Amino acid sequence: MLKLSEEAIESKLKNLIDWEYYDDALHTDFVFDNFKDCMSAMNRIAFECEALNHHPEWTNIYNTLDITLTTHDANGVTELDFKLAAAINKIVEVEEED
């Protein structure tokens, strides 16, 4: 998998709600109603990660989930990171704010 250029990343981010690019990675966070809902989302995301054989760096504190995506083998962001980010958004059902 090839590392994407910063221009390609910025272009792809326009179609990816609530994700940012910095430090050679994609970043987002989600706030849930409670710890149980957060853990449930993490478990659903874990199944998608296994299916794609691509795993996030993530932390959970109570109802907050912080996620960082990067492809270590490519030393940066690849198409696989965007594919997982889109899948995560579908799992969490991110809605665009008007």
Rank of each mutant, 00 (worst) to 15 (best):
Y21W: 13
N75W: 09
I9N: 06
D81L: 04
N75C: 04
L4E: 11
E48H: 03
D66K: 15
F30V: 11
V77K: 05
I61P: 00
M1Y: 07
E96P: 07
L84N: 02
T59G: 12
K36N: 12
D37I: 00
D24F: 12
C38E: 03
M42K: 02
T28L: 08
T64C: 10
A86D: 08
T28G: 09
K36D: 10
L2Y: 11
Y62E: 01
F82C: 02
T28R: 07
M39F: 14
N53M: 02
L52F: 11
I61C: 07
F35H: 12
T68A: 15
V31P: 01
M42F: 05
L84D: 09
I45P: 00
M42W: 00
C49H: 02
E57C: 10
D29H: 14
K12Y: 03
D33W: 05
N75L: 13
L84T: 08
E79R: 02
D66H: 14
I67E: 09
I61Q: 06
K14P: 00
Y21R: 03
F30W: 12
V31T: 15
K90D: 15
D23Y: 13
I67T: 12
D66I: 13
P56W: 08
D18H: 14
F47G: 00
M42H: 03
N60C: 04
C49I: 03
A74S: 14
T28P: 10
L16N: 06
A51E: 11
P56M: 10
F32E: 08
C49K: 06
S5V: 06
M1I: 08
L65W: 09
T64Q: 12
C38L: 02
P56S: 11
D29S: 15
V94W: 09
A74H: 07
E93P: 08
E7L: 02
D18F: 09
D37C: 04
K12W: 00
F35E: 11
L2V: 13
S40Q: 14
N34F: 07
L80M: 07
A86H: 10
I17H: 12
N34G: 09
T78R: 04
K83E: 14
L65S: 07
I91Q: 06
T78Y: 05
L84E: 05
V77W: 04
E96I: 14
F32P: 05
E96G: 13
I17D: 14
G76P: 06
V92A: 10
D23E: 15
N60Q: 06
H55M: 06
I45L: 01
E93A: 15
L4D: 05
F47T: 01
K90C: 12
A25I: 09
F47N: 00
Y62N: 08
K3D: 10
N43G: 05
E7C: 00
N60R: 05
S11H: 03
H54V: 03
K12A: 09
T78Q: 03
F47M: 06
T71A: 12
